[in-house]
Simulated scan of single mutants.
Amino acid sequence: MRIAIAADHHGVNLKQRLTAWLTAHGHEVSDRGSHSATDTVDYPPLCADVSRRVADGRADAGLVLGGSGQGEVIACNKIRGVRAGLGHSTFMVEISRGNNNANVLVIGTKVITDDEAERLLALWLSTPFKGGRHQDRIDQITALEA
């Protein structure tokens, strides 16, 4: 799977770890920045970059790392065709993929540990979309973008 990944300064260290994990599991990773854990960076352009890559097909999925993840999920969801979900728990990850067919996962590095992030990313990648009545809802969400 082709995965675009980005992190603000809060997520740079975790981004390096998850990039290595993704690569070791056979995924092609496009690191979209940032690269410094000490220089403050604004997350909206990073979210837009990852989300646009997912929306236009240059990436199959996106992963964005920030402090809480709240602002990042809002920014990602401004891009037409993106369904970003917060990945702070098993329940949230399963719902975002299984019910909402999320194509971008957002993780708050101040909310969960690095070990939890790795475990939740693995779960997100392996959770299939349920379709059926959930597809009807995705279609309704897509209609809101029109």
Rank of each mutant, 00 (worst) to 15 (best):
L22F: 01
V73C: 13
E28C: 09
N101C: 11
A102E: 04
N101F: 07
N103L: 05
A24N: 12
R83E: 08
N13E: 14
T90C: 11
E118N: 01
L86G: 06
G131W: 03
V93A: 02
S30W: 15
G11R: 04
A37Q: 12
I112C: 06
S68P: 00
L123W: 03
V29I: 13
G62F: 01
S34A: 13
N99K: 05
T19A: 05
I141G: 12
K78A: 15
A37N: 14
R80W: 13
A143V: 07
V50C: 04
S36H: 10
S34N: 08
S96I: 00
K78Q: 14
P44N: 04
T127I: 03
D8Q: 10
S36R: 08
G81A: 14
E118R: 08
D8N: 10
A24Y: 15
G132H: 15
L63S: 00
A20R: 15
H134L: 04
G11V: 09
R97L: 01
F129L: 10
R32G: 05
A6C: 04
L125G: 15
L144I: 15
N77I: 13
R97H: 01
L120F: 02
L144R: 12
G66K: 07
Q70Y: 10
L65M: 10
V64S: 08
T19H: 00
G62D: 12
R83A: 12
V29D: 01
F129V: 01
I5Q: 00
W124L: 05
